[in-house]
């Protein structure tokens, strides 16, 4: 999926977070967002996903203004954190099967296996470690057959082995022309995959480089 951002400026009430950000990604390109905590990486991601509202004419997916898209299709998102606002019990398998509207098939099993989710597939999510939960969130995003995959600090809390598994998954997706945007402090992780880096800083300024 092609992503175009034109002069995106965003402020929460007073504080300017993103100042005139523009970039273009072709299908299969990989963008790494970098910048210290609080510089607006998550904010930028939320603007792309319509979690935060942006003016018309700033963000386009395949040349369609996102404000004109009624329902997203083939967009995968791994949030930095999921707000659990309730105590209702739910298992890993329920989160994943509900995210997959088709009946379970080979693709489903491949995603589960590639991230090593099987050992805790039947567990209640309250019994998972942070890293295990992160893998579930990554799997959930992949189940949506993304053409655009956006991951907000997905490498936090996962061990080296899982990191490698994630890397391999992303590598394969890139080969399949999936556009990937990832925010991470671990620039080594995406070094070989990244086509561009976008660096944000505290005063809302950004810089893009290869």
């Amino acid at each position: 999926m092609q992503v175009r951002v034109n002069n995106l400026t965003f402020a929460y009430t007073q504080k300017l977070i993103l100042n005139d950000v523009s970039f273009n990604l072709e299908s299969g390109e990989f963008l790494t967002l970098v910048g210290k905590n609080g510089t607006g990486k998550s904010t930028l991601i939320k603007c792309l996903l319509k979690i935060l509202k942006v003016p018309d004419g700033t963000v386009f997916f395949d040349n369609v203004d996102i404000n004109a898209i009624k329902l997203f299709k083939n967009v995968g998102y791994v949030p930095q954190k999921v707000e659990f606002s309730y105590e209702f019990p739910i298992t890993v398998s329920e989160i994943l099967t509900s995210a997959y509207l088709k009946v379970k098939d080979e693709y489903f099993n491949k995603v589960i296996n590639s991230l090593g989710i099987n050992p805790f597939y039947r567990d209640n999510i309250n019994n998972l470690s942070g890293g295990q939960f992160q893998k579930v969130m990554i799997a959930r995003a992949l189940l949506n057959h993304p053409q655009l995959l956006i991951l907000d600090e997905p490498t936090v809390g996962i061990d080296n082995e899982s990191m490698l598994a994630l890397y391999e998954v992303l590598e394969k997706l890139k080969e399949k022309k999936v556009t990937i945007i990832i925010s991470t402090h671990d620039t080594d992780f995406s070094k070989d995959l990244s086509d561009y880096y976008l660096e944000l800083n505290e005063v809302g300024v950004f810089r893009i480089y290869k």
């Binding site: 996903l49 319509k50 979690i51 997203f72 967009v75 998102y77 949030p79 989160i95 995210a99």
Partner: peptide, 10 residues
């Protein structure tokens, strides 16, 4: 489970 994700997933 997750309203935001439900919306993004279509």
């Amino acid at each position: 489970f997750d309203e935001t994700h439900a919306r993004i997933s279509g």
